[in-house]
């Protein structure tokens, strides 16, 4: 069993602001992790550090046996594109493209993989099939949530980082989304790291750390 995520002595300090120290994380591949913590303890910061969109002040982050703190900007972009899936708290899409085109765009970088079957399959599982030709701005909140899950997983990443994926959902949908996330991750063989303050999620994951 290889280690998918491993951090040691991870610290981050905003310029002239808050400083965060994070506990060491070790996550084996195809296993999942729930990071719990109240607002303001640096959950989103941790997620940004792990996905390499924010450089750590000190410490090491090894993802899929790559020390990402040693990568330059271009190397990070490529690494993130290939191995990491991100599901944001706020949904981000390319607004000028429709649902299907957004999925195709995510499939295309950094390596061109025009896997139409996968696109249709994931859309089917997430109930997005009727909306593939719709503009992303026309989707409902729940549909946008499912599209962002699809975008986080469509390129078969090694590890998926999800930031508060359930915060805006009622109990029923919360369970649904977590189930979808876990199912998709298992289908792709991806590790799942969920960062949340939502206590409802705890029952679904055995592997937990608290910030």
């Amino acid at each position: 069993m290889t280690e998918m995520v491993k951090t040691e002595g991870l610290q981050f300090k905003y310029p002239g602001g808050q400083a965060f120290e994070f506990p060491d994380i070790i996550l084996n591949s195809q296993e999942h992790l729930l990071v719990l913590g109240p607002s303001g303890v640096g959950k989103t910061t941790l997620l940004h550090l792990l996905s390499g969109i924010l450089p750590a002040s000190s410490g090491s982050i090894v993802i899929n046996e790559t020390e990402i703190t040693a990568l330059d900007r271009k190397g990070l972009d490529l690494f993130r594109g290939a191995y990491v899936g991100l599901i944001f708290q706020q949904y981000h899409f390319i607004k000028s493209l429709n649902v299907d085109e957004n999925l195709r765009l995510r499939q295309n970088f950094p390596k061109k993989t025009m896997d139409k079957e996968r696109r249709l399959a994931i859309a089917e599982r997430l109930g997005l099939t009727p909306y593939l030709k719709k503009k992303v701005t026309q989707l409902s909140q729940g549909q946008q949530q499912r599209l962002s899950i699809a975008l986080g997983l469509i390129h078969r990443p090694q590890v998926v980082f999800a930031d508060e994926p359930t915060s805006n959902l009622d109990d029923f949908n919360c369970d649904q989304v977590i189930k979808l996330l876990k199912d998709e991750a298992e289908l792709c063989g991806s590790s799942l790291v969920i960062i949340t303050h939502d206590q409802r999620v705890t029952q679904h994951f055995s592997n937990q750390i608290v910030l």
Binding site: D77, F79, R80, G81, H92, F93, K95, F109
Partner: peptide
């Protein structure tokens, strides 16, 4: 800006 940042997370470099 946000779409460009999103594209960066998709693996597109600044170039």
């Amino acid at each position: 800006r946000q779409e460009l940042a999103l594209l960066r997370t998709y693996g597109l470099g600044t170039r």
